[in-house]
Design a protein around this nucleic acid. Sequence first.
DNA 1: AAGTGGTCTAGACCACATA
DNA 2: ATGTGGTCTAGACCACTTT
Lengths: 255, 255
Amino acid sequence: MPERPSLSRQIAADLRDAILRGDLPPGAVLPSERELIERYGTTKATASRVIGILLAEGLVSTEFGRGTFVRSRPPLRRISAARRHAAHRHTGKPIFDAQAISQGQVPTRRMLFVGRMATPPQAATWLKIAPGAETAVRRRLQLLDGEPAVLSTSYYPLWVAEGTRLESPEPLPEGPDELIEALGHSFSHGIEVFSARMPTPEEAELLALRPGVPVVHMWDVDYDRQDRTLQVAHDIYASDRHEFAYEWNEADINT
Amino acid sequence: MPERPSLSRQIAADLRDAILRGDLPPGAVLPSERELIERYGTTKATASRVIGILLAEGLVSTEFGRGTFVRSRPPLRRISAARRHAAHRHTGKPIFDAQAISQGQVPTRRMLFVGRMATPPQAATWLKIAPGAETAVRRRLQLLDGEPAVLSTSYYPLWVAEGTRLESPEPLPEGPDELIEALGHSFSHGIEVFSARMPTPEEAELLALRPGVPVVHMWDVDYDRQDRTLQVAHDIYASDRHEFAYEWNEADINT
DNA sequence: AAGTGGTCTAGACCACATA
DNA sequence: ATGTGGTCTAGACCACTTT
């Protein structure tokens, strides 16, 4: 893509270099659009486009009436997945809460929906049921220190959830996993599948995402020993507030 | 963020709905900018901004002189990490190649750099060496069916790499992992840490990323039984051409 | 009041693809 | 030749923040 660069890309490159070089450290204010207009002898539309480019790259964020600032990459919360089952079992708390607390953060949640729904196709596939068949659904926004972090939707098959507290709108103090085990089920194996993409506007709003911040999109599926699906979770993570870690050791290789 | 929507966002929302509803299926052409101008009674700049919004969301892509098209989410290549060590060991090929072939794809690679370098800070931390100290570095672009897929940079400590083929610019037919084992080392445990973000312009160019496509950014570190770092890899994946899967079973929990 | 980003109209020219 | 996206100048008004 050798595209000889347009003026707006040229200016954006100048600013990007200054940021990456450290001349404009995190938190620093960028030249205002009016300043760019003067300095480069251009117009508002172009200056605005320059900011738009850097915004889309996630390098800066704008504050209304104040200016444009170099975004700081804040310390990330590490979510070590697969293994979290081992570490945070039987704490009497949801895994999310236990992990957050162990990192010195305050977990909260906002329940968005609890009830039955026609299962979306992708979830139905994991649940091994007909698409459109009903499942029990819990959808909530999980926050760390008051900031939105994860948008999580869990699907439970009716043979697991029917008549249990999984269908009640109140929060589950012990977390869904422990509740499911208390109901006599047992987690045997699971899989996590994820990818990254840009958020939908709804996701961006719920997670308070700034422009240029992608989401990590994860399916988390747990099975019992009979290979029946006990739960399917669909999680949307704000990528600028998370990193993910998976560890392995020799024992895994020889499985 | 209830921001009462501007005209450009309004129009973008209309088109987005049509796409998500399926009225504009993948591959379909969007109304041209001139058409939008007429239909909504607006001007070029606004129509252009509308396309820009959808572009940044990764929903559409533009083709010069042809039009704007609904992007199709192509079938993704699943990279099952951690466990790939088990599955693809001792095939006589690099793990990437073995995995690609097992999915019916043709792996190729373009070596970008082989030699010694001052180690960047982050890599030095994983390697447990002083930042700036030299390591042997191999940087290459890996392709699937001719399309760029992964930009991979590996760092090898000198006590592992010195005087070996790891420092030679030729490709390693058996892959670095098997070569390291052949040199008498042994992989004992490892960790993968990743996050997602928007690409730098350099990454976007090398990976031929269209606008609105994030990258998954991964550190992959392998240790021997003495907990010495054998290699550190820094991989940049095109997120629209990859998904990642991690499996676990009961044995992992009781580790 | 002054400065900032956000959005818009109006009109122009360029580069590329296709028929 | 025509239609497409890409970019630009010129100038305007709005909404918000800070002094």
